[in-house]
Structures are given as structure tokens and as C-alpha cells.
């Protein structure tokens, strides 16, 4: 696991992944989708584990919305 956040393309077959992500939300209402996103964030955060990388990710995600 790299010790800095990867912000360059890193997913093989990106279109397939994106389709999987959308498919996971199929048939869910807004509350169900919010819950799924939250579970996904928690699972991926735990997988990363490294607090410094997570902090970078929080910064990167927050900066985009500003």
C-alpha cells in the first residue's frame, strides 16, 4: 500500500468499475443509496487504514466541492 494518496488513474477497466458502482445502487431509493455509500466509504477507509492517506483523501474530496 503506497503511503500517499493516489490521484492518478489506478483502476483497470475504469468503465466496468463505474458500471458496477451504478449497478450497486439499482433499485435503491435515496435513503438506501446514502446508506450504501456510507457503508462503502467505511469499508474502503478501513482497507486503506493509513490515517495520513485518509486525511489526504478527505482533503481531496472536500476541495472538489468548494
Amino acid at each position: 500500500m503506497p503511503d500517499t494518496l493516489i490521484l492518478t488513474p489506478n483502476i483497470e477497466a475504469a468503465d466496468d468499475f463505474y458500471a458496477d458502482l451504478l449497478a450497486a445502487h439499482d433499485g435503491l431509493d435515496r435513503a438506501g443509496s446514502d446508506a450504501l455509500n456510507a457503508r462503502l466509504v467505511l469499508i474502503l477507509s478501513n482497507h486503506i487504514g493509513d490515517r495520513a492517506v485518509l486525511a489526504e483523501a478527505l482533503d481531496a474530496a472536500g476541495a472538489k466541492s468548494k
Partner: peptide, 23 residues
């Protein structure tokens, strides 16, 4: 609302996945 969504997600995950229990 979102802190409730995250809280509920932690509790839901804690049932099946050990990683969520410390949260």
C-alpha cells in the same frame, strides 16, 4: 442527517464485519 447515515452504516456493518466494531 449524514451523521445518522454514517452511524447507522457503522452499526449495520458491525453485525457482520469485525472492522466496524471499534467505530
Amino acid at each position: 442527517d449524514m451523521s445518522r447515515v454514517l452511524r447507522d452504516a457503522v452499526l449495520d456493518l458491525s453485525e457482520n464485519y469485525e472492522f466496524a466494531r471499534p467505530l
